[in-house]
Design a protein around this nucleic acid. Structure first.
Lengths: 345, 345
DNA sequence: TTGAAAGCGCTAACAC
DNA sequence: GTGTTAGCGCTTTCAA
């Protein structure tokens, strides 16, 4: 087992000094080409790897970005992380992922861990459980560059990249209306999460624009799960006046609704339309395939990372808190489309 | 923007020395309780965070584990990472994720990056593209603890945690046979990947045990994608003698097969059975739901991480290359079950 | 163009 | 129980 080899080792072997080796490896302009060539050759031969830890300590920069996500399980976040990493790697940064599992305590610990790792910045998608944001403002106050993505909190003077949830919900609901559905229900998410709240508002706005009735009984307060989708259908079908379509706050609820509708042998979309949100991987593979709002996940990751880099680079310049709002994309599939071309599968 | 606060700052404020502060923070037994209390109180008050970088440099240990995965997109890996992180966090380790996107070059760069980050060990699931393993043996040779999970390569003297692919495939095929299917085809994966090769062999062994015919025309060489599943069905249905069921090397191929069968209006499972492998999230949500072999993902992650920790701790002791083989679990669902209880959805 | 030397923040062996 | 000191590997100012 070879021990780790350092610039000092290289310097000794070459009869020069660590300083010179360091400069040669970093292509410092004041070093002769001959020396650079010698150093690089030996470094390769000895499989020298720069000790990033020592380098980071000296430079006061870790070239590492922390990412706090609720769960790497969900396709959505996996996809955003793809976007994040592509931009990060292009710019010589690494990413340190931390999963909060939607927990508040876990989120605080994660942030703590990232700060302790002296990351150069943090990207975070807020956990569902979180209702207090002190840990974020504290991080901001000690000058840690921070950007929220997807799940953001306003009023904290922290930059964010989100999609236009209001508009996505509005368009999805409007699509259902255009397909001839007239009694449209909504499976809601936890309202303290801005995205879910905005989607609720977008839904209401679409109803209003088209002069369709909004009924309290047609709103089901779910918790973003397959189960709450099932319960929602149960609930709706108990009403004297049943809805004929539902816009679900995200795809798992929509999936639960589809399952329960299938269970009750209600034909979708002929007698009941369903629209989801998130465009999870499974949406297009269901039968009927699930219409959903795509959140531009990869682009969201890229934008968030780019924004974070700009904050890191500016630093002393303008911190200028910035909100980027991406446009959602409608994927209309079988579950909502009853007028024209039903493409199978 | 407060500047970062260090133990030296704390020491000055307390009229003591950095050494004492360090010991107090680390709960060194030789430090008085009074001093510990004072130090901890001030540290809290000043929001002191230990500089892990400096600590790592000094200790020659980063308490970070590198994880090389083909893609965080795929549910399978997300789930394994869950298992990895739970054990890692319990033991005071962090994880640094690196996605290879199935690429050989990307895998080498990733490993390089992890070595440079001076991680204490690396968990890797080999990229599909990889056919040369020199980067792994090189890492092993410089004493970097290494454990393969899921996609392993034998004969490198590197520990691994995999599931029993042979047995999983054997059981799945046998299940199809028990359901009365007699002409069972196989959608194969790239055969240089051991897992896929083993599954092929398990399939053949089950046929042999039950004295069913093995036909070359009933093997489709796919590339693990929805598309190759579709092409496989195309291929099978061109044969003079058509198969009546298929065991697919993994779920995406199985999904493609299901889609193409639906397209051709072939009733599944009545006229054609389908069995997948991996138990991806979507499998249970398809119509018909897809039978699949579950790979014990979370347990795989936990086992791999535990094994890696034991290697890190042993270090000079016996490196004792160890192979852990987990047992797969069969999830029989609608796509293969034509004898008894079809539970709907 | 290169060498010498200091220091990033932390820890631990050695003193007292 | 606490202070002193050296050093992890790297970068960079200053000097030559």
């Amino acid at each position: 087992m070879n021990k780790k080899i350092t610039i000092t080792d290289l310097a000794e072997l070459l009869g020069t000094t660590p300083g010179t080796v360091s400069r040669a490896l970093n292509n410092h302009p004041a070093i002769s080409d001959a020396m650079k060539k010698k150093v690089h050759a030996l470094a390769d031969k000895m499989h020298y790897k720069r000790n990033q830890i020592a380098s980071s300590l000296r430079l006061g920069k870790s070239y590492t970005i922390g990412v706090l996500i609720p769960s790497a399980d969900i396709n959505f976040f996996g996809s955003v992380v793809h976007g994040i990493e592509s931009v990060a790697n292009e710019n010589g940064y690494r990413t340190l992922l931390f999963q909060t599992n939607e927990g508040y305590k876990s989120e605080m610990e994660g942030l703590e861990a990232l700060l302790s790792a002296h990351v150069d910045g943090v990207l975070v998608s807020i956990a569902k459980e979180t209702k207090d944001y002190g840990h974020f403002t504290a991080a901001r106050d000690i000058g840690m560059p921070l950007v929220f993505f997807d799940r953001a909190k306003e009023g904290l003077d922290i930059s964010s990249v989100v999609i236009d949830d209001f508009n996505g919900a509005f368009l999805a609901t409007e699509h259902l209306i255009e397909q001839g559905f007239k009694k449209i229900a909504h499976i809601a998410g936890q309202q303290h999460i801005k995205a879910f709240h905005d989607r609720f508002n977008g839904y209401k706005a679409a109803l209003k624009k088209h002069k369709l009735p909004f009924k309290k009984q047609w709103i089901f307060d779910g918790d973003v799960s397959i189960n709450s989708g099932k319960q929602a259908i149960d609930h709706f079908f108990k009403q004297k006046e049943r809805p004929d379509a539902v816009f679900a706050v995200e795809d798992y609820s929509a999936l639960g609704a589809l399952k329960e509708l299938k269970n009750r042998k209600v034909p979708v979309p002929q007698e009941f339309g369903v629209f989801g949100f998130a465009n999870e991987l499974f949406a297009e593979h269901l039968t009927p395939s699930l219409s959903s709002v795509d959140q531009q996940t990869v682009m969201m990751g890229k934008e968030a990372m780019s924004l974070l880099l700009s904050i890191i680079d500016a630093k002393k310049g303008q911190p200028a808190c910035k909100s980027i709002i991406l446009n959602p994309l409608l994927y209309t599939r079988e579950s909502s489309q009853r007028l024209s071309n039903h493409q199978s599968i």
